[in-house]
Design a protein around this nucleic acid. Structure first.
Lengths: 167, 167
DNA sequence: GTTGAAATGCTGTGTAC
DNA sequence: GTACACAGCATTTCAAC
């Protein structure tokens, strides 16, 4: 679990995070090392799975998608299976397994409301073990850095709710 | 709002989505066009805001972060201000404004539980207009494509809950 | 207005240090 | 971690559709 990332590695990731297509030389110049060194460190981090992938971030509003966030309450013991099953659906592009009342939350993208309805019918109502679900239209994405995991199988964090507060 | 993306543009985005550092020539070869055309289309999509940025996706487990998902209920009229305020915090790396009971959901990354506690105290308890909040540890990220918006100011989607079902 | 082809300067990649 | 050499890439220009 513990990782051996030094300051230079973290600086490289920071720069890549802002500009994923930056050249090795540009990154190296910024950090006072050669581009070749940057390349080898990036190769190493990719092999070690620290770097999962490089991707493009697009504006869903300009692509005319309807973005919906879902929260699921699942039967005990079925959570991981349900997560995998839902994650396989094309329109689901983010999915997390959580502690707390909603075991699974995920984001999906639909072309129209009909597409949304067929998803709830064909997927959510078809999967066994979903006690309840809620869904809300995402009206606005303020930030989404995309700097997270893809297909992680870690099972470390404690199974408990951190906090639940009413002011 | 409506956008003029043809099939080639969408194919370019699909390929970039999987491999954000793909060369223009590689993309062009895949689609049967020259790399030159790919570059000009990518430049155009970036100017039009369809492409927001290129980024690297890393594995938070390997970076030793504690990932926590929050759901906020805010006072009417304060939602956007609160969203902006929270989004400015360093450890918050995803934030959406929603319809429904939880107006704002966001993901934050903490170095340890102390960092988590100082965040809830200094940020969540300091901001006016937060009626209640919930937080859950993210035990597992099954997918996270990162293919979404950064700093969108669109305000189009209807302000209503799509569905809320109890089976 | 959009494309492909050629020219040039820069970048990525492997090898040696 | 750096230096070099070469193949490949990005970028500009220009002609053609």
């Amino acid at each position: 679990m513990a990782t051996e990332l030094d300051t230079v590695d973290k600086q490289i990731l920071d720069l890549l995070h802002d500009e994923g297509r930056a050249t090795y030389n540009d990154i190296g110049e910024e950090l006072g090392i050669t581009g070749n060194t940057v390349r080898r460190r990036m190769d190493r981090m990719r092999e070690e799975g620290i770097i999962r992938k490089f991707t493009v971030m697009t504006d869903p509003a300009k692509l005319d998608y309807l973005t919906v966030a879902f929260g699921l309450s699942t039967e005990a013991g079925r959570t991981d299976d349900i997560a995998e099953e839902i994650a396989e659906t094309d329109c689901v592009y983010k999915l997390w397994v959580l502690s707390g009342t909603h075991n699974i939350i995920f984001d999906a993208r639909f072309e129209d409301t009909e597409h949304f309805q067929s998803f709830t019918h064909d997927v959510l109502h078809a999967v066994e073990g979903i006690a309840s679900y809620e869904s809300s239209i995402v009206t606005r994405s303020v930030i989404d850095d995309g700097s997270t995991v893809l297909m992680s199988d870690e099972e470390d964090a404690a199974e408990q709710t951190v906090a639940s507060v009413e002011d």
